[in-house]
Design a protein around this nucleic acid. Structure first.
Lengths: 202, 202
DNA sequence: TTAGTAAACTGAACAGTGTTCATAATAATG
DNA sequence: CATTATTATGAACACTGTTCAGTTTACTAA
Protein backbone atom coordinates (compact mmCIF):
# COMPACT_ATOMS: atom_id res chain seq x y z
CA UNK A 1 0.00 0.00 0.00
CA UNK A 2 1.62 3.26 -1.06
CA UNK A 3 1.90 5.98 1.50
CA UNK A 4 1.05 9.58 0.81
CA UNK A 5 4.73 10.38 0.53
CA UNK A 6 5.15 7.69 -2.08
CA UNK A 7 2.29 9.16 -4.06
CA UNK A 8 3.86 12.60 -3.85
CA UNK A 9 7.09 11.18 -5.12
CA UNK A 10 5.24 9.42 -7.91
CA UNK A 11 3.60 12.67 -8.98
CA UNK A 12 6.91 14.46 -8.81
CA UNK A 13 8.51 11.75 -10.91
CA UNK A 14 5.75 11.89 -13.52
CA UNK A 15 6.08 15.66 -13.70
CA UNK A 16 9.79 15.34 -14.30
CA UNK A 17 9.11 12.88 -17.09
CA UNK A 18 6.62 15.28 -18.68
CA UNK A 19 9.20 18.05 -18.60
CA UNK A 20 11.77 15.74 -20.19
CA UNK A 21 9.30 14.75 -22.89
CA UNK A 22 8.56 18.34 -23.82
CA UNK A 23 12.28 19.11 -23.81
CA UNK A 24 12.82 16.18 -26.13
CA UNK A 25 10.19 17.32 -28.62
CA UNK A 26 11.62 20.86 -28.69
CA UNK A 27 15.06 19.46 -29.47
CA UNK A 28 13.69 17.13 -32.11
CA UNK A 29 11.75 19.98 -33.71
CA UNK A 30 14.23 22.84 -33.57
CA UNK A 31 17.58 21.32 -32.67
CA UNK A 32 19.57 21.44 -29.47
CA UNK A 33 20.88 24.95 -30.14
CA UNK A 34 17.34 26.33 -30.06
CA UNK A 35 16.54 24.61 -26.78
CA UNK A 36 16.34 27.00 -23.85
CA UNK A 37 14.80 26.92 -20.40
CA UNK A 38 12.50 29.79 -21.32
CA UNK A 39 11.23 28.06 -24.43
CA UNK A 40 10.71 24.92 -22.42
CA UNK A 41 8.71 26.91 -19.87
CA UNK A 42 6.64 28.40 -22.67
CA UNK A 43 5.96 24.92 -24.03
CA UNK A 44 4.98 23.68 -20.57
CA UNK A 45 2.89 26.82 -19.96
CA UNK A 46 4.66 27.56 -16.71
CA UNK A 47 7.26 29.93 -15.38
CA UNK A 48 10.95 29.26 -16.07
CA UNK A 49 11.51 29.19 -12.33
CA UNK A 50 9.12 26.27 -11.95
CA UNK A 51 11.40 23.98 -13.91
CA UNK A 52 14.10 24.59 -11.35
CA UNK A 53 11.89 22.95 -8.73
CA UNK A 54 12.37 19.68 -10.61
CA UNK A 55 15.82 20.01 -12.12
CA UNK A 56 18.92 21.71 -10.78
CA UNK A 57 19.85 23.23 -14.11
CA UNK A 58 19.70 22.95 -17.88
CA UNK A 59 22.61 20.54 -18.05
CA UNK A 60 20.83 18.07 -15.78
CA UNK A 61 17.88 17.97 -18.17
CA UNK A 62 20.16 17.39 -21.16
CA UNK A 63 22.12 14.76 -19.26
CA UNK A 64 18.96 12.81 -18.48
CA UNK A 65 17.78 13.05 -22.08
CA UNK A 66 21.14 11.77 -23.26
CA UNK A 67 21.01 9.04 -20.66
CA UNK A 68 17.71 7.67 -21.94
CA UNK A 69 18.89 8.03 -25.53
CA UNK A 70 21.89 5.88 -24.71
CA UNK A 71 19.69 3.32 -23.02
CA UNK A 72 18.03 2.99 -26.40
CA UNK A 73 21.48 2.43 -27.91
CA UNK A 74 22.24 -0.24 -25.33
CA UNK A 75 18.96 -1.90 -26.16
CA UNK A 76 19.76 -1.93 -29.86
CA UNK A 77 23.22 -3.35 -29.26
CA UNK A 78 21.76 -6.09 -27.09
CA UNK A 79 19.36 -7.18 -29.82
CA UNK A 80 22.25 -7.92 -32.16
CA UNK A 81 22.52 -11.65 -31.98
CA UNK A 82 25.87 -13.05 -31.11
CA UNK A 83 27.18 -16.06 -33.01
CA UNK A 84 29.92 -17.83 -31.09
CA UNK A 85 31.95 -18.67 -34.16
CA UNK A 86 31.81 -15.21 -35.79
CA UNK A 87 33.12 -12.67 -33.29
CA UNK A 88 34.35 -10.36 -36.06
CA UNK A 89 30.97 -10.13 -37.76
CA UNK A 90 29.36 -9.50 -34.38
CA UNK A 91 31.79 -6.70 -33.59
CA UNK A 92 31.20 -5.11 -36.97
CA UNK A 93 27.46 -5.18 -36.50
CA UNK A 94 27.86 -3.39 -33.20
CA UNK A 95 30.03 -0.72 -34.75
CA UNK A 96 27.53 -0.22 -37.53
CA UNK A 97 24.65 0.11 -35.08
CA UNK A 98 26.65 2.65 -33.07
CA UNK A 99 27.26 4.85 -36.11
CA UNK A 100 23.63 4.64 -37.23
CA UNK A 101 22.48 5.56 -33.74
CA UNK A 102 24.79 8.57 -33.56
CA UNK A 103 23.60 9.89 -36.90
CA UNK A 104 19.94 9.41 -36.04
CA UNK A 105 20.20 10.91 -32.56
CA UNK A 106 22.76 13.51 -33.63
CA UNK A 107 21.59 16.13 -31.15
CA UNK A 108 21.94 13.82 -28.18
CA UNK A 109 25.15 12.39 -29.54
CA UNK A 110 26.56 15.86 -29.97
CA UNK A 111 25.75 16.83 -26.41
CA UNK A 112 27.21 13.60 -25.05
CA UNK A 113 30.54 13.45 -26.87
CA UNK A 114 31.11 16.74 -28.64
CA UNK A 115 30.45 19.25 -25.90
CA UNK A 116 32.80 20.08 -23.05
CA UNK A 117 31.24 19.41 -19.67
CA UNK A 118 31.00 22.38 -17.34
CA UNK A 119 32.40 20.26 -14.53
CA UNK A 120 35.21 18.35 -16.28
CA UNK A 121 36.93 17.48 -13.01
CA UNK A 122 34.79 14.61 -11.87
CA UNK A 123 35.69 11.19 -13.25
CA UNK A 124 33.44 9.81 -15.95
CA UNK A 125 32.34 6.21 -15.92
CA UNK A 126 31.71 4.52 -19.28
CA UNK A 127 28.13 3.87 -20.27
CA UNK A 128 26.68 0.37 -20.52
CA UNK A 129 26.74 0.65 -24.31
CA UNK A 130 30.50 1.01 -24.14
CA UNK A 131 30.77 -2.15 -22.06
CA UNK A 132 28.91 -4.05 -24.76
CA UNK A 133 31.51 -2.89 -27.25
CA UNK A 134 34.27 -3.91 -24.85
CA UNK A 135 32.75 -7.37 -24.53
CA UNK A 136 32.59 -7.76 -28.29
CA UNK A 137 36.27 -6.89 -28.44
CA UNK A 138 36.92 -9.33 -25.62
CA UNK A 139 35.45 -12.23 -27.57
CA UNK A 140 37.71 -11.37 -30.49
CA UNK A 141 40.75 -11.27 -28.24
CA UNK A 142 39.79 -14.55 -26.61
CA UNK A 143 39.37 -16.09 -30.05
CA UNK A 144 43.05 -15.29 -30.51
CA UNK A 145 42.62 -13.30 -33.69
CA UNK A 146 43.69 -9.85 -32.49
CA UNK A 147 47.32 -8.76 -32.40
CA UNK A 148 46.94 -6.97 -29.08
CA UNK A 149 45.43 -8.58 -25.99
CA UNK A 150 44.95 -5.24 -24.24
CA UNK A 151 41.16 -5.26 -24.39
CA UNK A 152 40.77 -1.83 -22.82
CA UNK A 153 43.17 -0.18 -25.24
CA UNK A 154 41.80 -1.90 -28.34
CA UNK A 155 38.23 -1.02 -27.36
CA UNK A 156 39.05 2.62 -26.86
CA UNK A 157 40.89 2.79 -30.16
CA UNK A 158 37.98 1.22 -32.02
CA UNK A 159 35.55 3.48 -30.23
CA UNK A 160 37.60 6.50 -31.26
CA UNK A 161 37.45 5.37 -34.88
CA UNK A 162 33.68 5.07 -35.03
CA UNK A 163 33.20 8.19 -32.96
CA UNK A 164 35.41 9.99 -35.46
CA UNK A 165 33.31 9.21 -38.49
CA UNK A 166 30.04 9.70 -36.62
CA UNK A 167 30.98 13.10 -35.24
CA UNK A 168 32.47 14.37 -38.49
CA UNK A 169 29.33 13.44 -40.38
CA UNK A 170 27.30 15.33 -37.81
CA UNK A 171 29.37 18.47 -37.61
CA UNK A 172 30.39 18.75 -41.27
CA UNK A 173 27.37 17.58 -43.26
CA UNK A 174 28.45 19.66 -46.25
CA UNK A 175 31.99 18.36 -46.47
CA UNK A 176 32.57 16.71 -49.87
CA UNK A 177 32.33 13.21 -48.42
CA UNK A 178 32.86 10.04 -50.37
CA UNK A 179 29.71 8.02 -50.89
CA UNK A 180 28.60 7.65 -47.29
CA UNK A 181 27.59 4.01 -47.30
CA UNK A 182 30.82 2.91 -48.97
CA UNK A 183 32.88 5.05 -46.62
CA UNK A 184 31.26 3.62 -43.50
CA UNK A 185 31.67 0.05 -44.78
CA UNK A 186 35.34 0.63 -45.59
CA UNK A 187 35.89 2.41 -42.29
CA UNK A 188 34.54 -0.45 -40.21
CA UNK A 189 36.45 -3.02 -42.25
CA UNK A 190 39.85 -1.40 -41.99
CA UNK A 191 39.58 -0.52 -38.34
CA UNK A 192 38.74 -4.12 -37.46
CA UNK A 193 41.19 -5.63 -39.92
CA UNK A 194 43.98 -3.45 -38.58
CA UNK A 195 43.65 -5.29 -35.30
CA UNK A 196 44.00 -8.71 -36.85
CA UNK A 197 47.08 -10.80 -36.24
CA UNK A 198 47.49 -11.65 -39.87
CA UNK A 199 45.46 -10.52 -42.78
CA UNK A 200 44.89 -12.29 -46.06
CA UNK A 201 42.28 -10.57 -48.17
CA UNK A 202 39.82 -11.98 -50.69
CA UNK B 1 54.73 54.47 -53.41
CA UNK B 2 51.71 53.73 -51.25
CA UNK B 3 48.70 55.96 -51.64
CA UNK B 4 46.76 57.33 -48.70
CA UNK B 5 44.11 54.73 -49.29
CA UNK B 6 46.70 51.96 -49.12
CA UNK B 7 47.93 53.36 -45.83
CA UNK B 8 44.39 53.44 -44.49
CA UNK B 9 43.95 49.84 -45.48
CA UNK B 10 47.26 48.97 -43.85
CA UNK B 11 46.19 50.58 -40.60
CA UNK B 12 42.86 48.82 -40.78
CA UNK B 13 44.62 45.51 -41.38
CA UNK B 14 46.98 46.04 -38.45
CA UNK B 15 44.07 46.92 -36.21
CA UNK B 16 42.30 43.72 -37.18
CA UNK B 17 45.44 41.75 -36.35
CA UNK B 18 45.66 43.42 -32.96
CA UNK B 19 42.07 42.47 -32.22
CA UNK B 20 42.77 38.89 -33.26
CA UNK B 21 45.85 38.76 -31.06
CA UNK B 22 43.96 39.92 -28.00
CA UNK B 23 41.18 37.46 -28.78
CA UNK B 24 43.77 34.71 -29.00
CA UNK B 25 45.31 35.53 -25.63
CA UNK B 26 41.89 35.60 -23.95
CA UNK B 27 41.15 32.16 -25.33
CA UNK B 28 44.55 30.82 -24.33
CA UNK B 29 44.13 32.23 -20.84
CA UNK B 30 40.51 31.41 -20.04
CA UNK B 31 39.33 29.00 -22.72
CA UNK B 32 37.01 29.49 -25.65
CA UNK B 33 33.88 29.28 -23.50
CA UNK B 34 34.93 32.36 -21.58
CA UNK B 35 35.59 34.35 -24.73
CA UNK B 36 32.98 37.02 -25.40
CA UNK B 37 32.81 40.17 -27.48
CA UNK B 38 32.36 42.25 -24.36
CA UNK B 39 35.42 40.77 -22.66
CA UNK B 40 37.39 41.33 -25.84
CA UNK B 41 36.25 44.97 -25.88
CA UNK B 42 37.32 45.33 -22.25
CA UNK B 43 40.72 43.86 -23.08
CA UNK B 44 41.06 46.23 -26.06
CA UNK B 45 39.79 49.15 -23.95
CA UNK B 46 37.13 50.04 -26.47
CA UNK B 47 33.39 49.71 -26.90
CA UNK B 48 31.95 46.36 -27.99
CA UNK B 49 30.43 48.16 -30.98
CA UNK B 50 33.87 49.17 -32.22
CA UNK B 51 34.86 45.57 -32.87
CA UNK B 52 31.96 45.30 -35.27
CA UNK B 53 33.63 47.96 -37.45
CA UNK B 54 36.37 45.43 -38.17
CA UNK B 55 34.57 42.09 -37.98
CA UNK B 56 31.04 41.17 -38.95
CA UNK B 57 30.47 38.98 -35.92
CA UNK B 58 32.02 36.77 -33.29
CA UNK B 59 32.12 33.74 -35.55
CA UNK B 60 34.24 35.60 -38.10
CA UNK B 61 36.85 36.30 -35.43
CA UNK B 62 36.92 32.67 -34.35
CA UNK B 63 37.07 31.50 -37.95
CA UNK B 64 40.11 33.65 -38.63
CA UNK B 65 41.81 32.45 -35.45
CA UNK B 66 41.15 28.86 -36.46
CA UNK B 67 42.39 29.59 -39.95
CA UNK B 68 45.77 30.81 -38.73
CA UNK B 69 45.98 27.94 -36.28
CA UNK B 70 45.52 25.52 -39.13
CA UNK B 71 48.15 27.30 -41.17
CA UNK B 72 50.47 26.41 -38.32
CA UNK B 73 49.36 22.79 -38.67
CA UNK B 74 50.02 22.89 -42.42
CA UNK B 75 53.45 24.28 -41.71
CA UNK B 76 54.22 21.51 -39.25
CA UNK B 77 53.05 18.83 -41.66
CA UNK B 78 55.22 20.30 -44.41
CA UNK B 79 58.33 20.12 -42.27
CA UNK B 80 57.95 16.36 -41.92
CA UNK B 81 60.50 15.05 -44.35
CA UNK B 82 59.25 12.65 -46.92
CA UNK B 83 61.33 9.59 -47.74
CA UNK B 84 60.40 8.12 -51.10
CA UNK B 85 60.84 4.52 -49.98
CA UNK B 86 58.92 4.80 -46.70
CA UNK B 87 55.44 6.10 -47.47
CA UNK B 88 53.92 4.34 -44.46
CA UNK B 89 56.32 5.88 -41.97
CA UNK B 90 55.68 9.28 -43.55
CA UNK B 91 51.92 8.86 -43.26
CA UNK B 92 52.20 7.79 -39.64
CA UNK B 93 54.31 10.83 -38.81
CA UNK B 94 51.66 13.07 -40.30
CA UNK B 95 48.91 11.40 -38.30
CA UNK B 96 50.92 11.78 -35.14
CA UNK B 97 51.57 15.46 -35.81
CA UNK B 98 47.87 15.99 -36.44
CA UNK B 99 46.88 14.47 -33.11
CA UNK B 100 49.53 16.41 -31.21
CA UNK B 101 48.39 19.62 -32.85
CA UNK B 102 44.74 19.01 -31.97
CA UNK B 103 45.57 18.33 -28.33
CA UNK B 104 47.80 21.39 -28.06
CA UNK B 105 45.39 23.74 -29.81
CA UNK B 106 42.32 22.06 -28.35
CA UNK B 107 40.26 25.26 -28.23
CA UNK B 108 40.78 26.00 -31.89
CA UNK B 109 40.39 22.36 -32.79
CA UNK B 110 37.13 22.19 -30.90
CA UNK B 111 35.72 25.21 -32.67
CA UNK B 112 36.81 23.88 -36.06
CA UNK B 113 35.56 20.30 -35.91
CA UNK B 114 33.37 19.90 -32.85
CA UNK B 115 31.00 22.83 -33.20
CA UNK B 116 28.08 23.04 -35.57
CA UNK B 117 28.41 25.99 -37.93
CA UNK B 118 25.62 28.54 -37.80
CA UNK B 119 25.40 28.47 -41.60
CA UNK B 120 25.70 24.75 -42.35
CA UNK B 121 24.26 25.12 -45.83
CA UNK B 122 27.26 26.43 -47.69
CA UNK B 123 29.70 23.82 -48.99
CA UNK B 124 32.92 23.42 -47.05
CA UNK B 125 36.22 23.06 -48.83
CA UNK B 126 38.93 21.01 -47.16
CA UNK B 127 41.86 22.85 -45.63
CA UNK B 128 45.38 22.65 -47.03
CA UNK B 129 46.39 20.45 -44.10
CA UNK B 130 43.85 17.89 -45.24
CA UNK B 131 45.34 17.90 -48.73
CA UNK B 132 48.73 17.07 -47.27
CA UNK B 133 47.17 14.05 -45.60
CA UNK B 134 45.51 13.09 -48.88
CA UNK B 135 48.84 13.29 -50.65
CA UNK B 136 50.45 11.06 -48.07
CA UNK B 137 47.70 8.52 -48.65
CA UNK B 138 48.20 8.91 -52.39
CA UNK B 139 51.85 7.93 -52.17
CA UNK B 140 50.85 4.79 -50.28
CA UNK B 141 48.24 3.93 -52.87
CA UNK B 142 50.70 4.53 -55.69
CA UNK B 143 53.22 2.32 -53.93
CA UNK B 144 50.61 -0.40 -54.33
CA UNK B 145 50.46 -1.32 -50.67
CA UNK B 146 46.89 -0.30 -49.86
CA UNK B 147 43.94 -2.57 -50.47
CA UNK B 148 41.72 0.24 -51.75
CA UNK B 149 42.78 2.67 -54.46
CA UNK B 150 40.01 5.13 -53.64
CA UNK B 151 42.31 7.83 -52.28
CA UNK B 152 39.48 10.15 -51.28
CA UNK B 153 37.65 7.50 -49.32
CA UNK B 154 40.75 6.12 -47.61
CA UNK B 155 41.88 9.62 -46.63
CA UNK B 156 38.53 10.48 -45.11
CA UNK B 157 38.42 7.23 -43.21
CA UNK B 158 41.90 7.76 -41.80
CA UNK B 159 41.09 11.36 -40.97
CA UNK B 160 37.98 10.21 -39.11
CA UNK B 161 40.09 7.81 -37.05
CA UNK B 162 42.58 10.43 -35.88
CA UNK B 163 39.88 13.01 -35.41
CA UNK B 164 38.07 10.51 -33.24
CA UNK B 165 40.87 10.00 -30.78
CA UNK B 166 41.82 13.67 -30.78
CA UNK B 167 38.31 14.90 -30.09
CA UNK B 168 37.56 12.29 -27.45
CA UNK B 169 40.73 13.18 -25.56
CA UNK B 170 39.68 16.82 -25.68
CA UNK B 171 36.08 16.41 -24.64
CA UNK B 172 36.50 13.58 -22.13
CA UNK B 173 39.79 14.27 -20.36
CA UNK B 174 38.60 12.37 -17.28
CA UNK B 175 37.54 9.21 -19.05
CA UNK B 176 39.54 6.23 -17.72
CA UNK B 177 41.78 6.11 -20.76
CA UNK B 178 44.44 3.55 -21.38
CA UNK B 179 47.95 4.91 -21.15
CA UNK B 180 47.72 7.75 -23.65
CA UNK B 181 51.00 7.31 -25.46
CA UNK B 182 50.45 3.59 -25.94
CA UNK B 183 46.89 4.15 -27.10
CA UNK B 184 47.89 6.72 -29.71
CA UNK B 185 50.68 4.50 -31.00
CA UNK B 186 48.37 1.52 -31.27
CA UNK B 187 45.64 3.63 -32.84
CA UNK B 188 47.86 4.93 -35.62
CA UNK B 189 49.32 1.49 -36.25
CA UNK B 190 46.04 -0.34 -36.61
CA UNK B 191 44.35 2.30 -38.69
CA UNK B 192 47.19 2.29 -41.17
CA UNK B 193 47.69 -1.49 -41.08
CA UNK B 194 44.00 -2.04 -41.71
CA UNK B 195 44.47 -0.45 -45.10
CA UNK B 196 47.32 -2.73 -46.09
CA UNK B 197 46.85 -5.32 -48.81
CA UNK B 198 48.43 -8.05 -46.77
CA UNK B 199 49.73 -7.93 -43.29
CA UNK B 200 52.42 -10.09 -41.74
CA UNK B 201 53.39 -8.88 -38.32
CA UNK B 202 56.74 -9.09 -36.52
C1' DT C 1 42.73 79.19 -39.90
C1' DT C 2 38.28 77.83 -40.55
C1' DA C 3 34.08 75.49 -42.38
C1' DG C 4 32.43 71.40 -44.00
C1' DT C 5 32.66 66.64 -44.81
C1' DA C 6 33.95 61.91 -44.07
C1' DA C 7 35.53 58.38 -41.07
C1' DA C 8 35.81 56.35 -36.53
C1' DC C 9 33.87 55.49 -32.25
C1' DT C 10 30.53 54.72 -28.49
C1' DG C 11 26.50 54.56 -24.98
C1' DA C 12 22.40 52.87 -24.83
C1' DA C 13 19.25 49.77 -26.22
C1' DC C 14 17.18 45.27 -28.08
C1' DA C 15 16.42 40.60 -27.71
C1' DG C 16 18.09 36.85 -26.01
C1' DT C 17 20.32 33.47 -22.29
C1' DG C 18 20.63 30.63 -17.37
C1' DT C 19 19.51 31.19 -12.76
C1' DT C 20 17.83 33.02 -8.12
C1' DC C 21 14.63 34.67 -4.67
C1' DA C 22 11.04 37.04 -2.17
C1' DT C 23 6.38 36.83 -2.62
C1' DA C 24 1.93 34.91 -3.75
C1' DA C 25 -1.24 31.11 -4.63
C1' DT C 26 -2.52 26.54 -3.56
C1' DA C 27 -2.93 22.19 -0.96
C1' DA C 28 -2.65 19.47 3.30
C1' DT C 29 -3.12 19.20 8.11
C1' DG C 30 -4.56 20.01 13.05
C1' DC D 1 -11.68 27.24 9.89
C1' DA D 2 -6.80 28.56 10.90
C1' DT D 3 -2.25 27.12 10.33
C1' DT D 4 1.39 25.10 8.15
C1' DA D 5 3.74 22.98 4.06
C1' DT D 6 4.12 22.76 -0.63
C1' DT D 7 4.15 24.63 -5.17
C1' DA D 8 4.38 28.26 -8.41
C1' DT D 9 5.80 32.69 -10.19
C1' DG D 10 7.14 37.72 -11.52
C1' DA D 11 10.75 40.28 -11.27
C1' DA D 12 15.39 40.78 -11.10
C1' DC D 13 20.56 39.70 -11.75
C1' DA D 14 24.27 39.02 -14.57
C1' DC D 15 25.43 37.64 -18.58
C1' DT D 16 25.41 37.05 -24.03
C1' DG D 17 25.68 38.91 -29.42
C1' DT D 18 24.38 42.65 -32.10
C1' DT D 19 22.49 47.23 -33.84
C1' DC D 20 22.07 52.12 -34.34
C1' DA D 21 21.47 57.00 -33.50
C1' DG D 22 24.35 60.22 -32.08
C1' DT D 23 29.02 62.10 -30.84
C1' DT D 24 33.79 62.70 -31.39
C1' DT D 25 37.78 62.75 -34.16
C1' DA D 26 40.38 63.20 -38.57
C1' DC D 27 40.85 64.88 -43.00
C1' DT D 28 39.97 68.14 -46.87
C1' DA D 29 38.95 72.32 -49.42
C1' DA D 30 38.49 77.37 -49.19
Amino acid sequence: MPTFKDKKQQIRHDLKQTILQHASTIIQKHGIRQFSMRKLALELECSPATIYLYFNNKEEILNQLVESAFEELSHRLKTIDFQEDQPLAYLKHILRAYIDFGLEQHDHYQFAFMTSRTKPNQPLQPHEAFHILVNAVKTCVEAGIFISTDIKMVSQSIWACIHGITSLFIVLPNFPWSEKEKLIQHHIDILVDGNLKSLKRK
